[in-house]
Simulated scan of single mutants.
Amino acid sequence: MLIALTVATAVAALLLAAWCGFAAFRDQPTKDWHFIGMAVVTLLAVVQLVVGVVQLARGEEPEQGTVIFVAYLLGSAACIPAAGFLSLAERTRWGSITVAAAGVVLAVLQVRLYDIWGG
Rank of each mutant, 00 (worst) to 15 (best):
S87V: 01
S87R: 00
V99Y: 02
R58Y: 07
L49E: 08
S87L: 00
A100M: 07
G103V: 02
I97N: 04
V51Q: 06
A23R: 14
F35G: 01
E90W: 15
T30Y: 11
V99P: 02
Q110S: 07
V105H: 02
I97G: 04
G52S: 07
A77P: 06
V53K: 14
V7G: 02
I36A: 12
A4M: 09
A13E: 08
E60L: 14
Q28I: 07
R58V: 11
I3R: 15
V67A: 12
G59W: 03
I97E: 05
M1T: 13
V40K: 07
A17Y: 00
V11H: 08
A83Y: 02
A57S: 13
G119R: 08
A18D: 15
M38A: 10
C79L: 09
H34F: 07
T92W: 03
A4T: 09
V50Q: 12
G95C: 06
A13C: 15
A8M: 10
F85E: 03
V104F: 03
A71K: 06
E60Q: 14
T92V: 05
G65W: 00
Q64S: 11
R112L: 12
D27H: 15
R26H: 12
I68P: 06
Q48P: 05
L14P: 02
A107N: 00
F69S: 06
A82E: 05
C20Y: 00
A107T: 00
R112T: 14
A89V: 08
L106Y: 05
F22D: 11
G119E: 02
R26T: 13
Y72D: 06
A71I: 05
L14T: 06
A77R: 06
A4Y: 07
R112P: 01
Q110A: 07
Q55E: 11
A100W: 00
A57I: 08
S96K: 08
L49K: 13
F35H: 13
R93M: 06
V99Q: 03
G52A: 05
